[in-house]
Design a protein around this nucleic acid. Structure first.
Lengths: 100, 100
DNA sequence: TTTATATATGAAGATATTATCATATATTTG
DNA sequence: CAAATATATGATAATATCTTCATATATAAA
């Protein structure tokens, strides 16, 4: 008999989190913030060569989904990883050499 | 100065793999195959309550992307995890309680 | 060799995601 | 206060993903 343990809710939550990160730019953001405690939108814009508005959309989305937090300081808004656990995802992925 | 280490190619690959798994049904497939060495399409259909054709699409997609392998035995096709490393993703996610 | 079963395929429609653009808001500085 | 700068917002267009359905293929069994 086939067993099945993880419940639907948990799977949906996991898929949700994964989705939030499953994008080159967003993954780069996580990576960047793993290496730098906090960064302003502008700083990330430059490093990632991503248009400001698009980056903003990504950042707000990630914040909304609980991956990032933000704090305002004058004109700048600094983003940082809310759950440093997310970094583990990246490491994990790096070790997983699926060939396709 | 902001540093940035991971290269584009790596990020794209990682995002690609993540995307493959960032879906409730596909995550359930990984989970199911982490617990059962190999399973036929039908067996998974029943457990996951997923329509055969849809499941087939998912499985083939996952195989194409290097997450799964398949072997035929008579009428059945058995799928199994190609990279058991993928299981770590799930564990990782489970420990990561992002609130959103 | 017809019938049943398991799986795959492909097209189309439904839905979701991503990118772009123009512009708004908020803050600082001159 | 006007101008400059940083970020956010919202509508829309472009694109990708997911689902469904009808049907094809391959194997096994009667």
């Amino acid at each position: 008999m086939v067993t099945y343990q993880i419940n639907k809710e948990k799977l949906e939550k996991a898929a949700f989190i994964l989705k939030t990160v499953a994008h080159p730019t967003r993954l780069a953001i996580v990576d960047l913030l793993a290496q730098n405690e906090k960064l302003s939108v502008n700083e990330m814009c430059e490093v990632l060569e991503c248009e400001q508005s698009l980056l903003s959309h990504h950042l707000i989305n990630m914040k909304l989904k609980g991956i990032l937090r933000s704090e305002k300081d004058g004109l700048n808004v600094f983003y940082s990883l809310k759950e440093r656990e997310v970094m583990k995802l990246i490491e994990c992925i790096e070790h997983c050499d699926c060939n396709y």
